[in-house]
Design a protein around this nucleic acid. Sequence first.
DNA 1: GCATACACTGATGTATCCATTATGGAAGGG
DNA 2: CCCTTCCATAATGGATACATCAGTGTATGC
Lengths: 221, 221
Amino acid sequence: MAKDDRPVSAADSAYLTLRADILSGDLPADERLTEMGLADRLGLSRTPVREAVKRLLIEGFLTRAPGEGLRVTALHADEVDQIFRIRLMLESYGARRAAEFASDAEITELFRLADAISARVPARTEADYDAMTEANAAFHRTITQAARSPRLSSMLSLAVNLGLVLRTYRMYSAQDMARQARHHHDIAQAIATRDPEWAEAAMSHHVLAAAAIARARRTRT
Amino acid sequence: MAKDDRPVSAADSAYLTLRADILSGDLPADERLTEMGLADRLGLSRTPVREAVKRLLIEGFLTRAPGEGLRVTALHADEVDQIFRIRLMLESYGARRAAEFASDAEITELFRLADAISARVPARTEADYDAMTEANAAFHRTITQAARSPRLSSMLSLAVNLGLVLRTYRMYSAQDMARQARHHHDIAQAIATRDPEWAEAAMSHHVLAAAAIARARRTRT
DNA sequence: GCATACACTGATGTATCCATTATGGAAGGG
DNA sequence: CCCTTCCATAATGGATACATCAGTGTATGC
C-alpha cells in the first residue's frame, strides 16, 4: 500500500474501507459477518476481501472464534488503556531514537507539520479537522521513520491503527486541541536539539495527555 | 492456527515451514523468491502460499521491494538490537501486568515450567534442547496470557517471532543456560508475590541478559 | 419424550484461470 | 558505444469454481 494510505489495490481498498466502517461503527460489533457478505458489500470478489479480513484479524479489529463466526472486536475500556500504554512505550522510544538519528530534512518537516497543525486550531470546518488529522498522522509517521528501525515502524503502525478509534480530533475541546498542538512543537524542538531524554519525555507527555482525554470522554459517557 | 502452533490448514503449514526455512537459513537472504516457486517447493497451490507470504511480509521476515522482488529480510546487527529493545519493553510490561492479574493456576504453571526448564540444564541431547525451547516458549506465553491484554499478546508474539532467530539455546554456554533458567524461577516468584515492580525488573533483567548473549555471539563471529 | 444420528446448508479453505503490471532484454537510433 | 524504447515474458493481483468442514435442524428409534 502507498505510504499515504492511497489504496492501490483492491485488497488495500477493502482493508481501508472495512477499517473505516469498523471505526465509524458502520459495522456494529454484535453483527455476524461473512467473507462473502463483505465481498458483496464492497463489490469485490472474496480474494481481496480475504486478505483484508486476515489483516484485520491480525491487527485485532476483527475476531474469529469457533462457533462465533467473524465479528468486529468489541473494545472494552481496559483494552483502550492497554493500547495507549503500548503506544506510549513504543512511540516514546521512537522519539528518543529520532532525536539521535533524524536528518535535517526530517526535522524541518516536523516543524512544518507542527505549524500546519497549529494553523488549524481551533478547528471549525470539516476541512480543518481533516487537515489536522492528516498533518498529525504525518508528524508521527515522520518521527517513526526518523527512528530508523523498520521493526519499530511496523509495530507502531499496528498500535496506532488500533488506537485510531480514539484519535479523532472531533472529540477534542478547543483547549485540548491547543495543548496537543503545542506538544508537537515541543517534540520537534526536543528532536532538533538532539536530546533523546527530552524527546522521549515530550512524547510520553503527549501520548499520556491524549490517553487522558480519551479516558475522560469514556467516563463522561 | 492452533495455539500450540500445530498447523491445521495448508496456509498455516506454509507459514510455519517458510518461517522455519528462513530462520534456519535454508532460504538465504540474497535469493530472489517467487510465490510460484515457493508453492512448488511446498507442494501447494499459490493460494495458501500467498497468505503465508503476506503474513511474513507484515511480520517483517520477508521484504517485497519494487525492482527487488521478494526476498528474505536481511537482519542487520542494529536491527537485532532494536528487536530486543522492543521485546524488552513489551515483555517487561507484560510481566508487570501478570503480577497483578495472574490466576493461581497460571502461577502454578509458571513454577512447573521453570522447573521443567531447569531439569534440562545443561542440555546435552537434542531432546533436551527441544524440551527447553518448548518449555521456555510456554513460560513466556503463560505470562503474556496472564497479562490479560489481547493486544499486548499479539504485539508480543510478533516481536518474539522476530527474535526467534536468536533464541536457540544451542548457542548458549552451560553457564548462560543455567543463568537464564534461574531467571525463570525469579520471575515466577516475583509474579507469585504479586509484586509488579519486581516482576517487571526481573523480566527486564532476563531479556537484557539474553540480548547480551546474542550480542556477544555476534561480535565474536 | 428425549437422545442420537444423519443430512443439509452455509462458510471457510484451496485450486485454477484470467488480467494487469512490471521487468529484462534486444534492437535500433543518436 | 551508450542510451532509449518497445516487446516478450514472467510474476502478482483478482475472480471463480470446487472441496471440505462445521453447525444446525429434523427425523427416527428407543
